[in-house]
């Protein structure tokens, strides 16, 4: 199959998901979860796979998006679109403000500072329990019907899935455009050879910042949808364990390819869903799958289709 045909098949499968997923024992909300994680990991992959920055604390922005959305619904306005907008801004601006702390670091130091910042937000959310619900998480809000003029769209599981699919489409279009742009080319050049770029007169730091900030907005966007999916969000959504899971998903699918993270998310979420109903040690199996895939496909599962980064 050509690349275009593969991608067309993927969209058809996604649009038809509410029909076929139940037939194989899944449920629509699982589809929503996959797409939400796909937005988050593809956003993270702008930094990780395309700019070469080991952002290991990305869940922080996912969680901030979730809390931003949940608290908007709970304390401010009963509006789903506003919840998504405000949550995205909260998480994205947090990444933007902290970007300067991150942008000069490289390799393991980049990883350490991003984890540290992530844990900082985690503790803020846990400690600020009058407002955030602390360890117990934030409940008591629900996604609201969407009003389009006179039309009211109730956010049933299936309708919510289509809202998520719409958001996924928008996010994909934005990320695709970015990676085709000079900014995206600069990111890839930073990953490939920072020194070469410096000696072309480019200062890599501000581009790393842009990458980190944009990834923050996209991950936060996904986080808002995650809170709306469950009508709940908890400190686990900011925890470094989730950050690590994001990275594992990306590596599973292939961090050099645009849609690689989606494949990784499918493997991870499906494995998690099925395996955790069979055994408490499901994480061991994920680990096993991870090791096997890394050994068999060093460029991730998507690497089979795509011998190298097509988006460069």
């Amino acid at each position: 199959m050509t690349r275009a045909a593969t991608i067309a098949a993927m969209w058809i499968a996604l649009i038809a998901l509410p029909w076929w997923l139940p037939l194989i024992g899944g449920y629509t909300a699982l589809g929503s979860k996959v797409l939400i994680y796909a937005i988050a990991t593809m956003g993270l992959n702008l930094v990780l796979g395309f700019t070469g920055g080991l952002s290991f604390g990305q869940a922080a922005y996912f969680g901030l998006g979730g809390y931003g959305a949940g608290m908007t619904l709970k304390y401010l306005v009963p509006s789903t679109p506003l919840a998504i907008l405000i949550g995205t801004l909260v998480g994205g601006l947090a990444a933007t403000i902290l970007g300067p702390l991150v942008m000069r670091r490289r390799g393991i130091y980049f990883a350490m500072i991003t984890i540290a910042i992530g844990q900082l937000f985690y503790f803020v959310i846990v400690r600020w329990n009058e407002v955030t619900g602390g360890e117990d998480g934030l409940a008591g809000f629900g996604r609201q019907d969407i009003h389009l003029g006179n039309v009211v769209i109730p956010l049933t599981d299936v309708n919510f899935y289509y809202l998520v699919l719409l958001c996924f489409t928008v996010a994909v279009a934005v990320m695709w455009t970015l990676l085709q742009s000079p900014l995206g080319h600069t990111w890839v050049a930073i990953r490939e050879n920072r020194r070469r770029l410096q000696f072309l007169g480019v200062r890599p730091e501000r581009y790393v910042w842009a990458s980190f900030a944009i990834a923050g907005f996209i991950t936060a966007f996904a986080g808002t949808l995650n809170a709306l999916l469950f009508n709940f969000t908890s400190p686990q959504d900011l925890h470094w364990i989730l950050s690590g899971d994001f990275v594992i998903m990306i590596v599973l699918g292939g961090m050099r390819s645009f849609f690689g993270p989606l494949i990784g998310v499918i493997i991870f979420v499906v494995a998690q869903d099925y395996l955790s109903s069979l055994t408490d040690n499901w994480m061991t199996f994920i680990g096993l799958i991870f090791v096997l895939i890394v050994l068999l496909f060093p460029r991730g599962v998507f690497g089979i289709f795509d011998r190298r980064a097509k988006i460069a």
């Binding site: 970015l178 000079p182 501000r206």
Partner: peptide, 8 residues
């Protein structure tokens, strides 16, 4: 001088 442009 277009490095920072997010689209082209």
């Amino acid at each position: 001088g277009i490095n920072a442009r997010p689209w082209i």
